[in-house]
Design a protein around this nucleic acid. Sequence first.
DNA 1: CATGAATGAGTCTTCATTCAT
DNA 2: AATGAATGAAGACTCATTCAT
Lengths: 209, 209, 209, 209
Amino acid sequence: MDFNDKQIQIIETAETLFAERGFDGTSVRDIADVAGVNVAMISYYFGSKEKLMEALFDLRVGSVKSRVETLIKDDSLSPLEKVNMLIDEHIDRVMQKQCFHKIMLGVQVTNKNPAILKAANNVKISTTEVVAEMIKDGQKKGVFKKKIDVVLMMNTMIGTVSQTMMSQLFYREFNNQEGLPNEEFLVLLKRRLSIHIKTLFKAILTNEA
Amino acid sequence: MDFNDKQIQIIETAETLFAERGFDGTSVRDIADVAGVNVAMISYYFGSKEKLMEALFDLRVGSVKSRVETLIKDDSLSPLEKVNMLIDEHIDRVMQKQCFHKIMLGVQVTNKNPAILKAANNVKISTTEVVAEMIKDGQKKGVFKKKIDVVLMMNTMIGTVSQTMMSQLFYREFNNQEGLPNEEFLVLLKRRLSIHIKTLFKAILTNEA
Amino acid sequence: MDFNDKQIQIIETAETLFAERGFDGTSVRDIADVAGVNVAMISYYFGSKEKLMEALFDLRVGSVKSRVETLIKDDSLSPLEKVNMLIDEHIDRVMQKQCFHKIMLGVQVTNKNPAILKAANNVKISTTEVVAEMIKDGQKKGVFKKKIDVVLMMNTMIGTVSQTMMSQLFYREFNNQEGLPNEEFLVLLKRRLSIHIKTLFKAILTNEA
Amino acid sequence: MDFNDKQIQIIETAETLFAERGFDGTSVRDIADVAGVNVAMISYYFGSKEKLMEALFDLRVGSVKSRVETLIKDDSLSPLEKVNMLIDEHIDRVMQKQCFHKIMLGVQVTNKNPAILKAANNVKISTTEVVAEMIKDGQKKGVFKKKIDVVLMMNTMIGTVSQTMMSQLFYREFNNQEGLPNEEFLVLLKRRLSIHIKTLFKAILTNEA
DNA sequence: CATGAATGAGTCTTCATTCAT
DNA sequence: AATGAATGAAGACTCATTCAT
């Protein structure tokens, strides 16, 4: 689980290429060439292309679960504040690791990499369970509605962010923001996305207008 | 654009396999074997694997735009009714063509198949434009809010449906519906998804509680 | 089981090379180069290097069992005549297919190619059973001794021929026959080997001096 | 010619693996792993895989020639007794070093390792010469026949033992001795093999019935 | 003295595509 | 119009060996 510099270099190169071309669309030679290392080194360090993918997953996923869990336990926050923080946390994570996120989408689409698919599912399951608990808490406190479909709610958050991330260029074109520097655009997009999802969640979670 | 029986047979086999294993994860020999045709026939009919993918796209996409456009022009419907119909239409289309939808997701994820990516984007652009017009109409009529981010709204619809479709099994597990026959489950899921998105859209479009 | 010309060409090339360098010591590229065909053709025709080996086995082994069986059923021959014919038959077969014989020795030595090893064993088993029957018949007729270890007897025949075949050069050197043309030498060797083994067998089978 | 403990450990591991999988079927990494040493150590100690094989040969062959020679010079034994001792010596050596024997068979089969093949031949040559002398002595003393093909005789001994060793399992099956513990079976097999070959040799060497 | 890190050459196999028929 | 035969290029991976430490 702890990789040396050269391993991390390979993993990060693989991350970029897998995101750009897909797992099957990327050859180990591609990765080796871009990373500036010998082809044999990938097998040497990771055993196989598949295992390299798993290493990438291990490196990137690591702390997700625990961060969500600690968030939930914070008693100084109201249920809605917690939900809003969950949203921002998710947006941040996806935006910061766009490549990795694209790869995970790809994993979900194809049935390949079963080991990773399973691991990714486990992350989703535990996250959803924690969120469900959080919502139950809000319901107990009377601030959330009675009937809430947690999975669909999560799907909306995850799906909206994914979709937005994948079609950034289109968002830019459609809203005539092509002049804006990318950095600024991303900040803007993040803010809007955050507000958008929070609005949606408020509507399905609370009784307020 | 008009394919003979054998061509359609090949395209539909390709659709299933591309959805299951991804474009790069599927070999033309796989397709030929499953479709029960000669390997050379794929090159013969479509020129290349890439072109076969484009043919699949042409066959499946065809009528989307026109259906949305006619929907919009129907003066007997209120703006909100139109939006709701748009939602149901989208859910139906995705659910009916799950395989194709998965493939399109894959196309968006990887940068491969630029021709198709462009075509898919065109569909999204024109659909969004039509929807934007529809919303403007609603705003003119005073039933919709002033400030509406159409693209994010569309992303929510598309993203929620995609995400839900991709993780059906998880939805089933989490809601303890494993005993339900698949057909019944899909009907249930569709109804819930429809209500869910309509609720979301109502919240961001109208001023009603 | 019936191969076309090109397949036979490949099989025979493989036979020579496997015999010269061993199975693992021969690359498919070697075979393809020597046979003057494309490397891919070996996988194309046989599926794999392993399967090529099996094809070689099928091609060469084919009729062994049946020939021995028909020999045994010939009522015009005395038991000892049958044994002698068996010896000559074996010597002829090994000498004619020296390469194949070397390969089979290699298969027995290493535990690789389990499928072929099993098939080869089956040939040995059924041959031994037939010979055992033949010997029982000789015993019933009173021309053979009571106590005969059929397996050791067969091992002597097979082992002596193998050993002689593998060390032909040494035989030649030791007996100062280096001047003899190879063809003539082989005829001589065969004759001597035949007499040698027949003498041995007579000693363990019969009571004659 | 004198190896330290670690070298012997490597050599003996190589012996086992070469016997099991053949020279080309065994990688230096396999050897290193099983021997519990570093991969580089094999090149470091022996220079190459090939040279390791030669070291194995040197370690195992060493004393063969001398033992046969001293046997021959023992004047207290009759020629036939000497031959019989030669047989038992050979059986013992092969049975005790089955692995090494298998490897030597493999070396004879393939043309690889020319250095070893030559060395192995030298052993055979000198042994045969010594035996030939011994037989000449027996002929002089009038106890052996005039015309004896020493090489074929040696081939019978070597070949029968090899063949029997390689197909132990078959011998066991065919003679319904599967229940017997392996140790006991080997003792039995050795005794029978000894008697078998002595009988054969007596028949070709002497005039007795 | 001994070894972990590294690699170029090589392994077998699969690929999409072509072409003569 | 349709296809069996064929292939060059590329795929992932393993090899024995080297070298700085």
